[in-house]
Amino acid sequence: MLLFTFIMDDEPKRSNTKEIQIDENLFKRIGNNDMEALEELYHLTERTLYAYLLSIVKNHDETLDLMQETYIKIMSSAHLYKPMGKPLAWIFTVAKNLYLSRLRKNKRVIDMDSVELFDDLRFSYITDPDDKIVLESAFDILDEEERQIIFLYAVSGLKHREIAESIGLKLSTTLSKYHRALKKLRNHLTEGGVGYEG
């Protein structure tokens, strides 16, 4: 019961989330070395980009590295950015390409699924045990796209349509993956081996 009330407190979080609206002019300003514009973009996108990269990279430190690289890459190419109405999609593309090129450079594709998933190091920053269990489950049982969709939906305040656009999937695909992923998590967390409900 205690857990339940705690959850109720947490529930409004998503509705409180401010939807990120990236003004495409920000890129133009960043291209002109406007540091305020960079900060604005950073604060708008920080958690969303983190969620996106974490869902792919599955490792906190590497995610931070890549985030940093992504913003720096954006700074060096913002003046080239052509407004196309999908600013977030571009940021994600840059981030993912950086990740892919890093994999290629390292010439070793680490199959993260085979790595110990309850690696304490990865989530040692999370103090709340429930948060930790749910996140770990997401890494454990969801595939990459499902995880992306769930993370972005939980963190960014974006609508399904916008998420679909940003990661380059169809809306219908995104929605069905979203529902399937939630169902998987639900089953895993209630019936599955984690059994923290008791």
């Binding site: 985030m67 920053y125 429930d130 749910v134 996140l135 639900r186």
Partner: peptide, 21 residues
């Protein structure tokens, strides 16, 4: 466990991650 609760946990989990770059 409800969907909204699951999302809320994920969100607060990710929010707890320190990002200082």
């Amino acid at each position: 466990m409800k969907d909204k609760e699951i999302l809320a946990y994920i969100r607060s989990g990710i929010d707890e991650m320190p990002i200082n770059i």
